[in-house]
Amino acid sequence: MNVLIYLIPLALALGALGLGAFLWSMKTGQYQDLDGAAERILDEEGDEKPL
């Protein structure tokens, strides 16, 4: 069962990574204009970050 020494931190780290990604995307305003994001993907000239 010694493999748990690696597996538990690994599981936690992956979970924390997901949590961190969510909090980051929220903080950078990526949920503020979901309709707009759907349209912007069709815009060829690239795009800047949300204000």
Binding site: D33, D35, G36, P50, L51
Partner: peptide
Amino acid sequence: VSARVNLSLRRVTVI
């Protein structure tokens, strides 16, 4: 400095 449209809220933020 920058301008951005918010389609969901029909707003424009201008800096």
